[in-house]
Amino acid sequence: MTNELTDRGQERRDSILDAALTVFVRDGYHATKLTDISREAGCSVGTLYTYFENREELLAAVLQKVQAEIGNASDEPLEEDFNRISYADALRASNRAYLVGYRANAKVMALLEQAAHLDEQIYDHRVARIRRYIDRNRRVIEQLSERGEIYPIDDPFMFTTALSVMISRLAYYTWVEGFFDDSDETLERVAKTIDDIWFRSLGLKTD
């Protein structure tokens, strides 16, 4: 729904999103009902329909909110003045912010994967998220290329897609599939590995 909200309406919508996040993560996509979310939010099911057309739209809004928080945190270092900070340092900070956010929201990311296989709207949202991440990384690579700091790349879009998907799946297997133990040491290992992938793939100087 796209109607402009009052401050009070936005506050209510945000509280519904928080409640929905709690219930979706707790009960899973299949078992979650709007009645459970309304109970958690302290409102009627009718109030939910004031802001969202159905359960799928509500889940999409929850996912968008969480992923925007992760994306904004990882984008921020790349908006620095690069006369003051090196690209290498900015990339390290960006990668770390992405991983910290992913780890903190691993249950939400698992929910996204689960729902995407069953609902076209959520699938489209998942694809849009991946494309946003790829496009962000493509812009970074283009900036590096313009500054002459990396090797020339024949197919920047394909290169960036491969790099981005590899990083995203490593995070997924680490914190959703539990391939490694969930510890600060693992976070450091994954962050270092991703930095190495970036720098070695691009031939980017790290000093």
Rank of each mutant, 00 (worst) to 15 (best):
T2F: 10
D7W: 08
E11I: 06
E11R: 10
D14T: 06
S15Y: 05
A20S: 07
F24H: 08
H30I: 13
L34F: 05
I37P: 04
A41W: 02
G42Q: 03
S44Y: 02
S44R: 02
Y49I: 02
T50V: 08
T50I: 07
Y51S: 01
N54Y: 00
R55Y: 05
L59Q: 02
V66C: 05
Q67C: 07
G71L: 05
G71T: 04
A73H: 00
S74T: 02
S74G: 02
E79D: 07
E80R: 01
E80L: 01
F82M: 03
S86T: 12
Y87G: 00
D89Y: 02
L91S: 01
R92S: 01
A97R: 00
A97L: 01
A97H: 00
Y102G: 09
Y102M: 11
A104S: 11
N105M: 07
N105L: 09
M109S: 14
A115R: 06
H117P: 11
E120N: 10
D124C: 14
D124K: 15
R126V: 10
A128T: 07
Y133P: 03
I134P: 08
I134W: 03
D135R: 15
D135N: 13
R136I: 00
N137T: 05
R138E: 09
R139E: 03
L144S: 01
S145V: 06
E146F: 01
E146T: 02
E146G: 09
G148S: 10
G148H: 09
Y151V: 11
D154F: 06
F157E: 15
M158W: 14
A162E: 15
R169W: 13
T174N: 10
G178P: 06
F180M: 15
D182M: 11
D182P: 10
E185L: 12
A191F: 04
A191N: 11
T193Y: 11
F199S: 07
R200D: 12
S201H: 04
L204K: 08
K205I: 03
